[in-house]
Simulated scan of single mutants.
Amino acid sequence: MEAEFRTGQIDPALALDVKRAQASTMLERLISTLATNAAISASALFVTTIDRGLTLSAGLWFTAVIASLALRVVMASILKRWETVEHAPQQALDVLTVGALLSGLAWAALPLTVPDFNALDGDSGLYLIMCGMATGAVLMGVGHNPVSLAFAIPPNISVMVSLAVTGSASGWLLTIDVVALTMVLIRSSRTSEATFVGNVLGKLKATALADSLSSANSNILRANYRLEVLANCDPLTGLANRTAFNTALDTGISAARLEEEQLALLILDLDRFKTVNDTLGHSAGDALLVEVSDRLRSAVDG
């Protein structure tokens, strides 16, 4: 099902519902994700100040990260206010992806803001924070992998570059490790999204099938009722026909015998009805039957 979704071979209405589910899920998790991001960015700022103190570049980096998070909060509020998830879910996903990319680029700039950054010694702990943030983004962004990868890839690329430029064997070895980690994150992100999409499609199709069965059952009941009416009612007058009369008579006789009661049978006839048909036509005869049936029905109801 997920492959059909990716290749566009699925019903457009169903695909739109999947997009809505993706956008809604990503939007619901955004606030907790941003709060975690802000807390970890503060810890990263603290790590940079342990030996160097608070530098202007580090302060600017932290400001940029917080600004990107605040912008994403504003974006989310606008999406909710305009109900973009409902009306244009793909647009909502694009906005969320752009916001994630801005935060990812801000995090990627971290090594550049630390004076005399030592990639293989005292500042290596920042790599753990950056790679951990990237991994966490993938774990949280299971609904739509472009959002999570837009945040996760820039910091990892920054780590790869800063390690590679050291020129040492250990730097290159760690670069390869980060590349492998990034590939795993990409694969994991795609797999998580596929699982999410598959689950949503399964629920949507199950709901559609249930609605279809309910509609079919209603149609069958209506058809059965119409057939029952046709089988037991005269199509012209709507009164019970001979079949229904015989059934009712048999039931009445059986009930009278069982309860030792008497059953009365009233027979009515229309005098000179054949004359009406022969002189005025069958349409007049039909009109007469309808009028008599209406009067009988009114008399019985009264």
Score class of each variant (00 low, 15 high):
residue 5 F to G: 04
residue 10 I to D: 01
residue 13 A to V: 07
residue 15 A to I: 02
residue 21 A to P: 02
residue 23 A to V: 02
residue 24 S to H: 09
residue 26 M to G: 02
residue 28 E to Y: 05
residue 30 L to N: 10
residue 32 S to K: 13
residue 34 L to H: 03
residue 35 A to L: 12
residue 35 A to M: 11
residue 37 N to W: 07
residue 39 A to K: 12
residue 42 A to K: 08
residue 46 F to G: 03
residue 47 V to L: 08
residue 49 T to D: 08
residue 51 D to A: 08
residue 55 T to D: 09
residue 57 S to K: 11
residue 60 L to I: 14
residue 60 L to R: 08
residue 61 W to A: 00
residue 66 I to D: 09
residue 66 I to K: 11
residue 71 L to Q: 12
residue 75 M to E: 11
residue 77 S to N: 14
residue 78 I to A: 12
residue 79 L to Q: 01
residue 83 E to W: 13
residue 84 T to Q: 10
residue 85 V to R: 01
residue 86 E to D: 12
residue 91 Q to S: 11
residue 92 A to K: 01
residue 93 L to N: 02
residue 94 D to C: 06
residue 95 V to M: 08
residue 97 T to F: 05
residue 98 V to I: 11
residue 100 A to L: 12
residue 103 S to Q: 15
residue 104 G to H: 05
residue 110 L to E: 00
residue 110 L to V: 08
residue 111 P to T: 06
residue 111 P to M: 01
residue 113 T to S: 15
residue 113 T to V: 13
residue 117 F to R: 01
residue 118 N to Y: 04
residue 119 A to K: 08
residue 120 L to Q: 01
residue 122 G to A: 05
residue 125 G to S: 12
residue 126 L to H: 04
residue 128 L to C: 05
residue 129 I to K: 00
residue 129 I to N: 01
residue 130 M to R: 02
residue 130 M to L: 15
residue 132 G to L: 08
residue 134 A to T: 01
residue 135 T to N: 06
residue 136 G to L: 11
residue 137 A to G: 15
residue 138 V to S: 09
residue 146 P to Y: 09
residue 147 V to C: 14
residue 148 S to F: 06
residue 149 L to G: 05
residue 154 P to H: 02
residue 155 P to Y: 03
residue 156 N to Q: 15
residue 157 I to F: 14
residue 160 M to W: 09
residue 160 M to E: 13
residue 161 V to N: 00
residue 171 G to H: 00
residue 175 T to G: 01
residue 178 V to I: 12
residue 184 V to F: 10
residue 185 L to E: 15
residue 187 R to N: 12
residue 188 S to T: 14
residue 188 S to I: 06
residue 189 S to A: 15
residue 189 S to C: 11
residue 192 S to Q: 13
residue 192 S to N: 14
residue 194 A to R: 03
residue 195 T to D: 11
residue 197 V to P: 01
residue 201 L to W: 02
residue 201 L to F: 05
residue 203 K to P: 00
residue 204 L to I: 15
residue 205 K to F: 03
residue 206 A to L: 14
residue 211 D to L: 13
residue 212 S to Y: 09
residue 214 S to D: 15
residue 215 S to F: 08
residue 217 N to Y: 13
residue 218 S to N: 13
residue 221 L to P: 00
residue 222 R to G: 10
residue 224 N to R: 13
residue 227 L to Y: 09
residue 229 V to F: 12
residue 233 C to M: 15
residue 236 L to K: 10
residue 241 N to H: 06
residue 243 T to K: 09
residue 248 A to Q: 04
residue 249 L to Q: 09
residue 251 T to A: 11
residue 254 S to K: 13
residue 256 A to Q: 09
residue 260 E to L: 15
residue 260 E to F: 08
residue 263 L to C: 07
residue 264 A to V: 11
residue 264 A to F: 07
residue 264 A to G: 10
residue 267 I to L: 11
residue 267 I to C: 04
residue 267 I to Q: 03
residue 268 L to S: 05
residue 271 D to V: 04
residue 272 R to T: 07
residue 273 F to H: 04
residue 273 F to P: 02
residue 277 N to L: 12
residue 278 D to T: 03
residue 278 D to P: 10
residue 283 S to C: 06
residue 283 S to H: 14
residue 284 A to W: 02
residue 285 G to N: 05
residue 285 G to L: 03
residue 286 D to Q: 10
residue 286 D to A: 06
residue 288 L to Y: 03
residue 288 L to Q: 04
residue 289 L to C: 03
residue 289 L to A: 04
residue 291 E to F: 05
residue 292 V to N: 02
residue 296 L to A: 00
residue 296 L to M: 08
residue 298 S to F: 06
